[in-house]
Design a binder for these strands. Structure first.
Lengths: 115, 115
DNA sequence: TCCGTTGTACGACGAGCATCGTACAATAGC
DNA sequence: GCTATTGTACGATGCTCGTCGTACAACGGA
């Protein structure tokens, strides 16, 4: 339980578990989120994704991704900025994120190429 | 729904879904099974694994892996021979299986090196 | 100051999952 | 033919997950 940014709890790099990462990415909605994040390389607010779910569900998915160590969340005013923990993931599981993004289906595959 | 071997239903190579594969591998027990299979490259009976679950649960896990397209099952007498669908997986999601096995924790990591 | 925006918290609900025990089917070996 | 082995089938159980609605908190702009 190491606080990386402020009061939002993130797992430390060494605490990231493979099972949790795979489970986090096994949901299509969350895979879409990660693919979007990978496309842009920067920080995105939760609302900037056009997801087929409500706000509540959205919050839930971002929480799962964060607690699995896949993304990082940083509070800025009323919005929350999300970014991929690409370096931490690559350090812990080399190549994993890249191959999953390349393997991601249809529209997501296009996103992976940009990254 | 294409029958690859006999009467046991396997998904065709093109029908393998990333979400299903990731979900299948997100369970520690199933990841152990896959790592064991990857270690030996051959065919193994269900009973040859020393898993911390009962027979019933074992059957369930093998079924999940098979329906996700990760493994192949072939009936031979009373036993069922399991093998990894390494080529199909590599064709559909290049590099995915390899990176996940390399990322697999502790004892599993040793198994991945052998492969 | 008031309102709109952004996102969380909490409770609820239905579905799926991991696990088990028991019963059963099929084959191999004696 | 009888029995041991191997694995499935089925039902049950408790847990987790994905989804939603409503209510609420925090900040920014007019």
């Amino acid at each position: 339980m190491s606080v990386t940014t402020e009061s939002i709890s993130h797992p430390a790099c060494s605490e990231i578990e493979l099972s949790a990462v795979l489970h986090a990415l096994s949901d299509p909605v969350r895979l879409m989120i990660v693919a979007e994040l990978a496309k842009g390389e920067g920080e995105y607010t939760c609302g900037s994704f056009s997801l087929p779910v409500t706000k509540s569900t959205c919050t839930h998915h971002f929480k799962v991704l964060r607690e699995a160590g896949v993304i990082q969340q940083r509070q800025q005013g009323t919005t929350r900025l999300n970014s991929l923990r690409r370096e931490d993931l690559d350090a812990r599981f080399p190549g994993l994120l890249g191959t999953i993004l390349k393997a991601a289906p249809n529209s997501v595959a296009v996103a992976a190429e940009t990254a």
